[in-house]
Nucleic acid binder design. Sequence first.
DNA 1: CTGAAAGCGCTTACAG
DNA 2: CTGAAAGCGCTTACAG
Lengths: 343, 343
Amino acid sequence: MVKRASMSDVARVAGVSLTTASRALNGVGRVSAETRARVIETAERLQFQPDMLARSFVTGRSFIVGVLAESALGRFSMPLIMGATNYLGRENIATVTLDAQGTPRILNEYLKRLRARRIDGLLVVGDDPNRASLVLSEDFAVPVVFASSSATPETDYVVAPDNRGAGQAAAEHLIGLGRRHIAHVTAAVHDPAVDARVEGFTAAMESAGMPIAMGGPLYGSYLQRWGMDAGERILDSGKPVDAIFAANDEIAIGLFATFHRHGIRVPDDIAIIGYDNRLAGVMRPDDPLSTFDPELTTVGERAAERLLDVIGGTNTPGITYVQPRFVEGRSTTGPTLEPYDVL
Amino acid sequence: MVKRASMSDVARVAGVSLTTASRALNGVGRVSAETRARVIETAERLQFQPDMLARSFVTGRSFIVGVLAESALGRFSMPLIMGATNYLGRENIATVTLDAQGTPRILNEYLKRLRARRIDGLLVVGDDPNRASLVLSEDFAVPVVFASSSATPETDYVVAPDNRGAGQAAAEHLIGLGRRHIAHVTAAVHDPAVDARVEGFTAAMESAGMPIAMGGPLYGSYLQRWGMDAGERILDSGKPVDAIFAANDEIAIGLFATFHRHGIRVPDDIAIIGYDNRLAGVMRPDDPLSTFDPELTTVGERAAERLLDVIGGTNTPGITYVQPRFVEGRSTTGPTLEPYDVL
DNA sequence: CTGAAAGCGCTTACAG
DNA sequence: CTGAAAGCGCTTACAG
């Protein structure tokens, strides 16, 4: 292991001062073209790599950002965080990942640590950024970007999936297929992400001049069980329904199970769209379920990208939306789905 | 934003030299008990936090480790990497995540970067650590730990799931249930992880003095389609089979689909065990499929823990195995599984 | 356009 | 047990 060349070495060999070497290598300040060329050539010959630790120390830029998650190992946080750290890695930025685990005490402890590391910025991942926002006191003034599925004050820097747009797209897809009695089986009330999908769906139905089947969205839970029950309720009602937008894939599959049991064909009789693309990564010839992929990895990437922009001073507050990707599957475009297909 | 106290501030206020302050605060060298107490008290009063950038600069320890993945966003790498970064974050270690994407050129570029950052260690995530091993040249001498599902030379530091143990446990579970004609439907040949499961399974069957049904493991692919075909092949053979260990959940589900179509009940007639716990995180009252959870997050944690030990000089080479967790589901312990249950 | 020098905030021989 | 001083490898006023 040979000792690495320092900038002084480069300067000495190139016959210039350390000051000039620094300027030439960093491309700042006035240096004659020939001097610059000579220094750069020398640096390459010596395989000079600037010591980032020294640079960080003197500039105060650590090239490290914090990633603060409510629950880093959660099903939704994970791809988002990975998208972010992967992007940051490509940009040669390190991350320190901290799981707040809900308690403000831990959060405060973590913020102290991050301050000691002089992080360049902070990415907050989770659905309740307001809480984190509160704790981010004045004396910890680094750029903060929120990656979240819920809406937040317009004064923050936020990146989130466009749940509203997805709801709208779902309605439009079903309408475009010629369906006329479209229901919406959603989950819990007061989940911002779910609410936004309801909104978008409702808006699209209204502008198509089409009432929502079953008299409006049916609220329940996130479970497959609720989808099965909702299916029964729809069939019992006797009301015409030929398409359903479900709040997630579990509900969609529950609906399908009930319909199949009753001999109702999907999509022939009733088309179904889910949400989450839960079966992503399972290799199969075709997608059984029409659904939306929230592209959480992309959300993470965009959030990281934006954080670097804020750090660089070239960004203004507001929400950036990432469009969920519609996955066209057999539950809307056929052929008729069999249970084995969805396994 | 008030200026943070430096160690000099603490020294001055406490009436000692910078040297003494440093020693008192770090607990090294000889300092009288009272002096130490005074310095520590002063530091707390001034809310002193040592500047890690300065410390890193002088000690050369960056408190940053590299995470080099073959495919960071892959289904298996993701939980592993998150487990590692999460553990490291708790220990106040930052990570720079790099996705090698297979090409040695990119890999070399990344290693140069990591050297410039003076990382303390490197975690290599992926199934082909040997390749990375090759590129990790002599002059980049930092501790390296491999987190992988395949075996590697005993001279390396490796953390991996105990695939062999899982194969063994699968056979033992089925034998314990009283099954006597146990087959093994596996995937591709020459996948080290899958091979190890075959080995463990075979060993357990041998020590129970029980031949493998169907004359030995059936090799195919990772797809559900293969499971369906294998099911047909088993039924066509006319040979007695009352239990199957499948190499993954896709295959297990394919087997189930075929059996159900033919009126064969699971687990009553044939019990099935899968692998991967692919349905983890899907909320349901009971687990439909008996399977193994590879605990990849734990593998990542252990690998990170071990890396810190190697960096600290308190570890010796060898493989650490993480035991996959058996998930007991209805496909081995009933009641009879219906397609809707597995959806 | 170029350079001598100060300084970032610590750790650590070295001397007492 | 304690302290004065050097040094880690850069950046950046300041002066020429």
